[in-house]
Amino acid sequence: MVDEFWFAMEVLISGLLQGFMYSLVAIGFVLIIKSSGVFNFAQGSMCLFAALGFVSFWEAGLNFWVALGLALVMMIVLAVVIERVVLRPLVARPPLILFMATIGLAFLLEGLAQALWGTQPHGLELGIPDSPLEGLPVDISQFELFAAAISLLLVLALVIFFHRTRVGRALRAVSDDHEAAMSVGISLQMMWGITWAIAGGVALVAGIMWGTRLGVQYSLTLIVLKALAVLILGGFNSITGAVVAGLIIGGSEKLVEVYLNIIFGIGGVESFFAYALAMFVLLFRPYGLFGDEIIDRV
């Protein structure tokens, strides 16, 4: 009985930790949706691009931190270029057009990555073993714990930034009303540049974490698929929502997978459970669990 309990705990915890990894990707989307109202289709490609850049710098013999810093600078430059070349000319166009532009951007980034760094998959080893921590009744991967801690720190930093700083407040103002934000002297271009840069930084972290897990390769862009379910569940414009929804999905899909298999012998639920859950939530709370509720005056 006790063994069974610990087994359930182990499944749950490993699911939750995996959930943090989902959140890490989802946050990148949330940032850009908040500031420019665009669903950034290129977020996955940005993860890949950032991770590939980092790995290449590191493999070229640079110090870990130098490589990380260089990759970050690269993502910031990319953000500035995207703002200049893609967003600025499309200002005040319908969101669908911007969305299409990000699709183009996704393929452009993948092509660019291929041209710069080739198509070889790269292994990534951060030196944190993916083996269980000693001395606990459950097996918890050290790497997953580390990844969760990083995501948590990142989220904390972002929440403080959005709620306690002048620029953070301006970003929230922009997400509520572009034009009114302009009217008080907030530069939209500057704000978009900043959010895309932050989203680029988040993509770098997510890319490195998932790259360590799966290897840095082109299929890395597919990690956004799970993030999609996280977004729907948590709400497209809530960072807190992205974290909580990541945890809910990570935890529940593992439990469902394991126990459906044990009890009914049904397998493979993990791959689609998240979407089913997201769809179910969509029926009752169209703006997600934590999304900005639509304030309607009647």
Binding site: R166, R169, A170, R172, A173, S175, D176, D177, E179, A180, A181, S183, V184, G185, I186, D292, I295
Partner: peptide, 18 residues
Amino acid sequence: RCFEHLSVEEDLMTGAYT
């Protein structure tokens, strides 16, 4: 055109952005 998800005080503070 208030920023509807900002508090009154935060909204006023956005005016001091520049």
